[in-house]
């Protein structure tokens, strides 16, 4: 049975960092349609700092590694992104505490903890036009792959990425009720949620990267 070793988890975080830095301007543009246009910048600020502190992260196990990433992100991402993305990493880190590798089932459960961490901090639920509308479908796709007995992690990551992209697409027909896009009411219709769309891009690149 194949598992995700700590090395793979670190590669996933590195890929995520690279995608966020590469798409800083694009992610800001996504946020300009109904929000205030700073999402890409806020997010990149935290991950730039993560890249700078790469050598100082706690690597004693997967949980400590992800949690220490979360601390850097929470302190350095601007605006709402700090508590949301930092909180997600910290919740995932707590789940993976003491683990040296993750099965597909555990990886899915870890992402579920992250999603629930975001939900606890921000109070959003699925359908509110937030990044949760991409994250929960990804979690469900990974859980379904794990349940089917597959140990093909690369294939599961692909189906997770497709679910995120589809979830982000579906936010176009939702009216925002959280974050600054909620202030414009119906005018957020027709645009995807910036966070959900970004997750679609991030998971797609992770699935295409050679992380296993």
């Amino acid at each position: 049975m194949s598992v995700l070793k700590q090395e793979s988890i670190e590669k996933i975080v590195d890929t995520m960092t690279a995608v966020i830095l590469k798409n800083e301007v694009y992610f800001c543009e996504l946020d300009s349609a109904a929000g205030d246009g700073d999402f890409g910048m806020s997010l990149a600020k935290g991950f730039k700092e993560l890249q700078k502190n790469k050598e100082n992260l706690d690597r004693s196990d997967i949980g400590s590694y992800i949690r220490s990433c979360g601390d850097v992100i929470a302190e350095n991402c601007g605006g709402a992104s700090g508590p949301i993305w930092g909180g997600a990493f910290k919740a995932a880190g707590r789940y993976a505490s003491g683990k040296a590798s993750l099965t597909l089932t555990e990886f899915a459960e870890m992402l579920r903890s992250a999603a629930e961490g975001i939900q606890k901090r921000g109070g959003a639920k699925p359908g509110d036009k937030t990044l949760l509308d991409a994250l929960f479908p990804t979690v469900e796709a990974l859980e379904a792959a794990a349940k089917s007995g597959s140990d093909n992690i690369a294939a599961a990551l692909k189906s997770g990425a497709e679910a995120a992209v589809k979830g982000a697409e579906a936010t176009k027909s939702m009216i925002a009720s959280r974050g600054r896009a909620s202030y414009v009411g119906d005018r957020s219709l027709g645009f995807p949620d910036a966070g959900a769309q970004a997750l679609g891009v991030i998971f797609t690149e992770i699935a295409n990267a050679d992380v296993i």
């Binding site: 700073d38 910048m41 806020s42 605006g79 700090g82």
Partner: peptide, 11 residues
């Protein structure tokens, strides 16, 4: 003081 239009961090 946060960055332009972004909340300061909890720290």
């Amino acid at each position: 003081c946060g960055d332009v239009f972004a909340s300061p961090s909890s720290v």
